[in-house]
């Protein structure tokens, strides 16, 4: 199962780029793809898809990232088809409701969904080619100026890393309770809504109890291992090397070209 944060080791160009550059590029990409005109959005989406494939990310993994969002993707699509642009002749009309769709609405829906999917691919590319520790080091780097206004940047970065570390624990805890219930003959197949709600509440409560118990043990262990709030040293060392400088120049150049083209298309 794919979930964000599933870093896979590799030796592609994207794996080797500085995480700060990757994070900054992803943020810029996310803003830009929502802003640029459709032809440029199409090009940017294809570019990020190509980058993901070149980095060794499989189609299956990309599809798995889309799967949990399929409902929203379809919802966005149909909302734009039926309630979007209406500047051309309707192709078909739904009786009673009076909704109709047109080529303009279809085009609009396609591009909105395309932008959304491109954002997901960019997120997959970032998380699958960047080790979580590097990502956190990059976040910490960008948050550093906030230290001037006394924001506890080190604590925030550490909290993010703990949250990422214990995400699998939540899933494991849910599985554990599920199996324990089944082992004692508890099955929901054919059950009505009320037993399902009850089971969901029971599961949620038990997962939460497990999480609190674990958090308690963890805080004790952290204390035993000399953790104190505030600045910490770092095992992860970020170094901007020549390939990063080259990539940064190329990306800046591309950004300039995109903005110029977009203004021209406007």
């Amino acid at each position: 199962m794919y979930h964000t944060g599933s870093f896979v080791k590799g030796s592609s160009l994207f794996h080797n780029l500085d995480p700060r550059l990757k994070l900054a590029t992803t943020v810029c990409f996310s803003v830009l793809i929502l802003w640029v005109k459709p032809p440029l959005a199409l090009f940017m989406g294809l570019a990020v898809l190509l980058a993901a494939l070149v980095s060794g990310i499989r189609w299956r993994t990309i599809a798995a990232a889309f799967k949990p969002l399929l409902f929203f993707i379809l919802l966005i699509f149909f909302v734009h088809v039926f309630f979007g642009e209406k500047d051309s002749e309707p192709l078909m009309q739904i009786p009673v409701l009076g909704w109709h769709w047109s080529p303009a609405g279809l085009r609009e829906a396609f591009f909105v969904v395309w932008r959304f999917l491109s954002l997901i691919i960019a997120a997959v590319l970032l998380t699958m080619t960047t080790a979580p520790s590097h990502m956190i080091a990059a976040i910490k780097y960008f948050l550093r100026p906030l230290k001037l206004v006394r924001v506890p940047v080190d604590d925030i970065a550490f909290m993010i890393s703990l949250a990422l570390r214990f995400m699998p624990f939540l899933l494991a805890e849910k599985e554990r309770i599920d199996i324990a219930q089944k082992a004692r003959g508890y099955h929901l197949s054919g059950a009505g809504i009320a037993p399902r709600i009850k089971s969901f509440l029971f599961l949620t409560l038990n997962v939460l109890l497990g999480v609190f118990r674990r958090a308690d043990e963890l805080s004790l262990a952290m204390e035993a291992r000399n953790y104190q709030r505030g600045p910490r040293a770092s095992f992860t060392e970020l170094k901007f090397v020549s390939v990063d400088y080259l990539a940064a120049i190329l990306l800046l150049f591309s950004l300039f070209i995109f903005v110029a083209f977009n203004l021209r298309l406007s």
Partner: peptide
């Protein structure tokens, strides 16, 4: 209950990081 790092080396580095040692010494 004790392991806080995501990888083995990150976890082993946790204490020296808390002791604010230089990166080379942590490694």
């Amino acid at each position: 209950s004790q392991i806080v790092g995501m990888t083995v080396e990150e976890d082993v580095a946790f204490c020296p990081e808390n002791m604010r040692l230089p990166t080379a010494e942590i490694k």
